[in-house]
Amino acid sequence: MILERFNKTFESKARLGIMSVLMVNESVNFNTLKDLLQLTDGNLATHLKSLEDAGYISVTKEFIGRKPNTLYTATADGKKAFVDHLNVLEQLIKGS
């Protein structure tokens, strides 16, 4: 059953969106993600945390002057999981 291969981490639209952005950008900061995905701070932070826990993204904190800047990058595992997920989506659509 194909649905069993459906990755639970990507069930949420927000997490799917975060991964989409990180697939085509080397690293992206928190505010840029917020603008692109139109999420609240808390909401975005929660989704980022769960992706980080799954090992799909890595987090780097740096400072620009005195302002903290948090950068997010997709890990190799994360990229692979996302591509696999896209393939499942494609099969689901073709199969219908």
């Binding site: 639209k13 799917l16 969106g17 989409s20 952005v21 697939m23 085509v24 950008n25 992206v28 840029t32 692109l36 995905l37 896209l86 989506l89 494609e90 689901l92 659509i93 219908s96």
Partner: peptide, 20 residues
Amino acid sequence: MNEHLDNLREIRSLMERSSK
């Protein structure tokens, strides 16, 4: 099923908007 198509469209649009 439409939900999956919508998701793919959204992914595509985000990839484009975030890199261009």
